[in-house]
Computed example of a mutant assay.
Amino acid sequence: MSDDPDLNAAYALQTPEDSRQLYARWANTYDTTFASANGYVLHMQVASLFVKHGGKGSVLDVGAGTGLCGAALTAHDIKPVDATDISPEMLEVARAKGIYRKLFTGDILRGLDVKDGTYAGVTSSGTFTTGHVGPDALDEVMRVVRTGGRITLSINAQHFSAQGFAAKFASLERDIHGLTLTDVPIYSPETTGDHAKDLARVASWIKR
């Protein structure tokens, strides 16, 4: 892994500890050296689809990072929004923006310190991707949302196919309804480079 954090380093992550180390180094420059420099727009896509499908607060933003998706949600007047992320350093950057009601460090793969059915919605942008989180984490996402709550999250399109997300959604069929899968660009049309044309599949559904 390169000493300088970048998208290739993020895609090369293998373990939660790898994620903690990378994002600890990247936190203070993430918004400029990654999001702005690469025309990253996925957070706006997720927030827009959450609103389009009728999502409302209170919302837990999973893998909130520096607060990009949280800012997009509040721009749509979705409130209150709480944030969780594996990286306390990323959350400190988000905290300074004044977006979130509450922020807490958490590993979605190990379970979050949240009571069952706490939230009316969950969003996640850029967390379900190569080197990060697979389909098993959907169980924890479902647990923290109340019946009738809206979940909208992005899944890297290649990761969706390679890691068996379709089978996972099929296994959840009795517990969800209104599932939509929308392919969206991760980056703006002006972006260049190896990952410029990468797509995410934004899954949105209601918990029964």
Results as ranks from 00 to 15, higher is better:
Glu140Val: 08
Ser171Gln: 12
Asp116Met: 04
Trp205Lys: 09
Asn8Thr: 14
Gly63Pro: 05
Ala196Asp: 02
Asp4Leu: 12
Ser154Met: 06
Gly63Asn: 06
Leu13Trp: 08
Ser36Trp: 01
Asp113Glu: 15
Ala203Thr: 09
Lys97Phe: 06
Leu172Tyr: 12
Arg201Leu: 15
Lys207Met: 06
Asp4Trp: 04
Leu172Phe: 14
Phe34Glu: 03
Gly117Ser: 10
Tyr187Gly: 01
Val59Met: 05
Leu103Gln: 06
Tyr11Ala: 10
Thr127Gln: 02
His195Gly: 05
Val41Trp: 01
Val184Phe: 02
Ile176Val: 13
Leu112Ile: 04
Lys168Glu: 02
Gly39Asn: 04
Asp3Leu: 14
Arg201Gln: 14
Arg174Gln: 14
Gly57Thr: 12
Val81Ile: 13
Ala162Met: 04
Phe104Cys: 11
Asp77Ser: 14
Ala10Asp: 00
Pro185Ile: 01
Ser36Asn: 10
Ile78Gly: 06
His76Phe: 10
Phe50Leu: 07
Asn38Arg: 13
Asp183Thr: 15
Thr32Glu: 10
Trp26Arg: 00
Ile99Thr: 08
Thr32His: 09
Arg201Lys: 15
Ile108Trp: 11
Asp82Met: 05
Ser48Gln: 14
Gln163Leu: 10
His195Cys: 02
Pro189Lys: 03
Asp4Met: 13
Pro88Leu: 00
Thr192Ala: 04
Ala170Asn: 11
Ile86Val: 08
Ala170Glu: 13
His132Leu: 11
Ser36Phe: 07
Val51Gln: 04
Leu199Thr: 14
Gly178Thr: 10
Ala200Glu: 13
Lys197Phe: 11
Ile99Met: 04
Pro185Gly: 00
Gly148Ser: 05
Thr105Trp: 00
Leu22Pro: 12
Gln45Met: 10
